[in-house]
Design a binder for these strands. Structure first.
Lengths: 257, 257
DNA sequence: ACAAAAATAGAGCGAACGTTCGTTTTATGT
DNA sequence: ACATAAAACGAACGTTCGCTCTATTTTTGT
């Protein structure tokens, strides 16, 4: 298990190529943490734990394990998900599962690792934009896109952080605080440069972060009908609607009078 | 276990007396769900489950059980809290615990019951105010005050809802949706009466609710220093600061141009 | 002081859990 | 086609859980 996400990124330039943000469809094609690439990444980052040697088998099984974990544990939590449930859901034997992990907790640690990596990519991306407003708007967009593709991962980590080692818990809350502080500084920059006006930059920043959380924690709020979850056109529409709603709101909060 | 909060309220006029909102200190003195009254209420609402007959003992033990539950389960969740942990933390024997509950799940059900009752009180209170804005402002204030006094309860229910029976889960999300819809309607009323202006009443309403959740889910965000948690003056200041931050923000979002 | 109620300590139950390991099946290279 | 290494299997193990029960002591109300 990689303990330092930054180092891991530096060593692997595959994750350093820019991600397209022009539309969710474009993002989908360039964001590295999805599909087979995601599970290959997961395999390589946990090569010391995964006993299965051939990448082909390990990647396929990790995918089965993670997807089943999200499905089963979303019902009543990670603790109540037994590895026998997981065995049933994946169609794998207990032994096969234990050749991908060394203990149940590893699954949660892997989720935390990937979400942290995704957050790191989001943070890095924010540095590219030109104006303060563009930086805020693109940070929101990137985070919205990434947390949509990784929705089960973000959701899982939010609810299961408490059952991780304390050190990992602190890392998670630190990421949230960093996210707020990052927005806060961008806002304050804009204020001091006469681009925005607000009396409570911290509150606006916190509101943004909380609305980002709401997006992946309560999908049923925004994406109203349960059907056509996978229709790309409809999904593109939903996510862009939400992005515009958030940015319009922030624009209003930062408007000069 | 009462299955219908509304009925229980109708039968018991003690909960119908108005609650003071002029300050948190005033609220503290009139809000019924705290201290001994809270646990007495809990005892009476669960008289069919609690085997202990004398109210004096039952109330004292329920208080010990609930407080210990919040303390232990806040570390790593309700599922990982064993009743042996609870016995150690409360200083009670297994037998004594099981004379207050019939099974472990009862504890979580009691929390859900109280939080739902508190939400019901909040909802009822909202009907008193005169103008649309006063109604919004007072709803926020009431909810903020109540969820501060009952913080561990609200926190617990948010994270443990998933391990409750499905019927209870739906009830919880319904309460959240009702809360959003209630704010949405108040906003729309204000808009149609020319008091406010906004193009997305739903988004504003949702933001309010999400910021209310943030208050009791992440106390470390707003109440910065860990010390003096119980200093009433400092607490009054903190909560009023947050209330003003939220209402200022909502005011800005609903301002006519 | 005395009967009733409450609390105690702890042994014990069956079920379910995470984890292990000897065995069998499958895949791979020549 | 065959040998060997890798992967998958699933019964079994030891532990812990929620929960019950009993014998005994403490506290309470009158």
């Amino acid at each position: 298990m990689s303990t330092n996400a930054t180092l891991a990124i530096e060593n692997r330039d595959a994750l350093d190529t820019p991600v397209a943000l022009s539309s969710f469809a474009a993002f989908r094609e360039t964001f590295p943490l999805q599909g087979e690439r995601l599970y290959t990444e997961l395999f390589e980052r946990n090569s010391e734990i995964v006993q299965t040697q051939k990448a082909r088998f390990a990647v396929a099984n990790l995918e089965k394990i993670m997807k089943a974990t999200f499905e089963v544990s979303s019902v009543s939590g990670f603790d109540r998900m037994s590895l026998r449930d997981l065995s049933r859901q994946t169609g794998m034997s207990m032994g096969a599962i234990y050749s991908c992990i060394s203990k149940k907790e590893d699954i949660a640690l892997m989720v935390a690792d990937i979400v942290r990596l995704s957050s790191e990519l989001t943070r890095q991306h924010a540095l590219r934009a030109s104006s303060n407003w563009a930086q805020i708007e693109e940070s929101i967009r990137f985070h919205l896109y990434a947390s949509t593709l990784l929705q089960p991962w973000y959701f899982f980590l939010f609810f299961e952080t408490r059952s991780l080692p304390e050190e990992q818990q602190q890392a998670s809350t630190q990421i949230e605080l960093d996210g707020i502080r990052s927005f806060e500084e961008q806002i304050k920059n804009g204020v001091s440069q006469g681009e925005f006006y607000t009396e409570d930059a911290r509150m606006v920043a916190n509101t943004i972060v909380v609305l980002m959380e709401d997006w992946y924690l309560k999908p049923w709020k925004n994406r109203l009908s349960g059907e056509s979850h996978s229709d790309p056109v409809w999904q593109e529409k939903q996510i862009n609607n939400y992005h515009r709603a958030v940015t319009d709101m922030v624009k209003k909060l930062l408007a000069k009078r």
